[in-house]
Computed example of a mutant assay.
Amino acid sequence: MLVATYNVHRGRGPFGRFRPSRIAAVLAEIRPDLIALQEAQHYLRPGRDMLDFQAIRRELGLIPLRVPDCPGHSGWRSNVVLVRDGAGVGFGPLGLRLGGLEPRGGIVAELDLGEGPFRLLACHLSLGAARRAVQAERLVRAVQSGRGPDLPTLLLGDLNEWRQDRSALAVLRPVFGPSASPPGFPSFRPMLSLDHILTRPSGMLRSLAVHDTPLARRASDHLPLTAQFDLAGRAVPEAPARGP
């Protein structure tokens, strides 16, 4: 299945213009089975959707994974997960309180998109390194939720970390293995790998790449990160690549 993570920068391009319709157009380019969005809700208008989810459902067959304890919202603390319409939900979704001043958070759920059950962890971590390490420890504890650590786990989001031996990635590496994510920030000249897709056990990702198109470079300050997620773990991870 095709999965992705995308910090949509509150619907603003890298130079600040509010154009949420561009985000929807990028989703149409990718056509994922599951995508985690960060900064995808209005901060000052929390009850109002930034994206036209009815049109996205109609055109792409994707629906928001709504958190029950956050009624009236499409996500949790600006995290929105879109999944293929008809996906099975075995646990959750639940909002994860990760702390921080921004604020930050995540979503955990057990899903089945027709290829078997797996745990989803979608998140957006803080800018401060010390806080990111604490937040990563909370994500590791979330692996114990539901049916426990034996369930295959997909973690994806903006971790705000590009160094394998620092803060969040250092905490996550013993559980998920090293990240092979290519650089996708800033979108107009990608240099840093802030966005990551990880699995437990490792070895379930292939075709890991940034979605680098002219439209994606204008839609947000991050490029989307995509991967084929193979629950059977048969695929050998490929070298990081860039491309649409």
Rank of each mutant, 00 (worst) to 15 (best):
L172P: 04
F229R: 08
E29D: 06
D69R: 13
S187I: 06
L208K: 10
I197H: 13
P20A: 10
S179Q: 15
T213F: 13
M204K: 12
R48V: 14
E102H: 09
H42E: 05
A55L: 06
P201D: 03
D52A: 07
V210C: 08
I23Q: 06
R234D: 01
S21E: 10
R104P: 02
S167T: 11
E115Q: 08
L225E: 14
F53R: 04
S145E: 09
G114I: 07
G86K: 01
S187H: 05
Q54A: 15
I56E: 02
Q54L: 14
G13L: 00
E161G: 01
L121G: 08
P201H: 12
R12P: 01
A209P: 15
R141V: 06
A216D: 10
T199V: 08
R189M: 09
G243S: 02
G11T: 05
R217C: 06
S202R: 15
R173N: 14
V8S: 07
L82G: 05
H211L: 15
P71D: 09
L156F: 14
R58A: 05
L205V: 15
L198E: 04
P152Q: 07
E102K: 01
V83N: 04
R12A: 11
L172K: 09
G75D: 04
R217L: 00
L151H: 01
F188K: 05
Y6V: 03
